[in-house]
């Protein structure tokens, strides 16, 4: 679905603040895959998602989205933006319409669809993100923070993109609001077969949802693997300034102290299962 070949990007090229943000990136993301994208500030992850949506163009290299080369001059960027939906950070600040329904309709109505289709898509998207019907006629500014964010996500979904990119969708939400948004994203991914790229600072959130995790560091692809394999390298993750889940640290520490526990544990349930097994059977490795 997405393929990057030798992609590099430099900010303010030739200027005094020139900074190489991405250095020769190669990667492939399959159709319907759920990818978590992690890296500390300045790692290049924001640059990467802006490239995927065509907001910026690479210095060199090729980016293929669903068979189209978006770095080709003849490619219409309009089509790419409809194919790749980007939900930016704090998207609720971008709401502007009188009613929730109008706000969600803004994207699809710019696609040249007829009114019935726009309305149908907007209502469908609202339902997907779990916004009750009675909210659709309200002003988006009267909603709670979590609801506003869902309106913003619905606005992107209503364009029926093939790839959905979310930049820190849970920032600033409380634990209950965070779990709700993450659950909805997972649900949409499964029901619509969407390819999802979730950018997050939270290892816990990403590990719970993603098929594969892409770890960026200083403009380079540091790791791109399943959560289990990623968390086998907890020392390296800490070294490059990322937070490893507390359970991973506990299991790693216990293994150092001699308990027979496997590597790459990253959920509480998995940790519980392993420790229980070790405690009840002694030697057996789980």
């Amino acid at each position: 679905m997405i393929k990057l070949e030798n992609v590099s990007y430099t900010y303010m090229k030739g200027g005094p603040f020139e900074k190489k943000a991405l250095d020769n990136i190669n990667l492939e993301i399959g159709k319907g895959e759920f990818v978590g994208l992690i890296g500390h500030t300045g790692s290049g992850k924001s640059t990467l998602i802006q490239l995927l949506n065509g907001l910026i163009k690479p210095d060199c290299g090729r980016i293929m989205i669903d068979g189209t080369d978006i770095t080709d001059k003849n490619t219409k960027m309009r089509d790419i933006r409809f194919k790749v939906g980007l939900v930016m950070q704090y998207p609720e600040y971008q709401l502007f319409e009188e009613t929730v329904l109008k706000d969600i309709s803004f994207g699809p109505s710019n696609m040249g669809l007829d009114n019935d289709e726009v309305k149908h898509r907007a209502e469908f998207a609202a339902n997907l993100v779990g916004l009750p019907k009675e909210l659709l006629s309200k002003s988006p500014f009267d909603l709670s923070g979590g609801q506003k964010r869902r309106v913003a996500i619905a606005g992107v979904l209503a364009m029926e993109p093939k790839v959905l990119i979310l930049d820190e969708p849970t920032a600033g939400l409380d634990p209950a609001g965070r779990d709700e948004i993450l659950f909805k994203i997972k649900d949409m991914h499964e029901r619509m077969g969407l390819t999802v790229i979730l950018v997050s600072h939270s290892m816990e959130d990403v590990a719970k949802l993603a098929d594969r995790i892409l770890v960026m560091n200083k403009g380079n692809k540091e790791m791109f693997d399943t959560p289990e394999n990623i968390f086998r390298n907890s020392e390296r993750l800490t070294e490059i300034g990322l937070n490893v889940p507390q359970v991973t640290k506990i299991v790693d520490e216990l293994r150092r102290r001699g308990m027979p526990l496997k590597e790459g544990v990253y959920t509480i349930n998995d940790a519980l299962y392993c420790i229980k097994k070790a405690l009840s059977k002694g030697e057996e490795l789980c």
Binding site: Q246, I250, E253, L254, R257, M259, L279
Partner: peptide
């Protein structure tokens, strides 16, 4: 992490 590991180690 340390406190939790200590308690589990005792069980072990």
């Amino acid at each position: 992490v340390g406190e939790c590991a200590d308690k589990i180690e005792q069980l072990w």
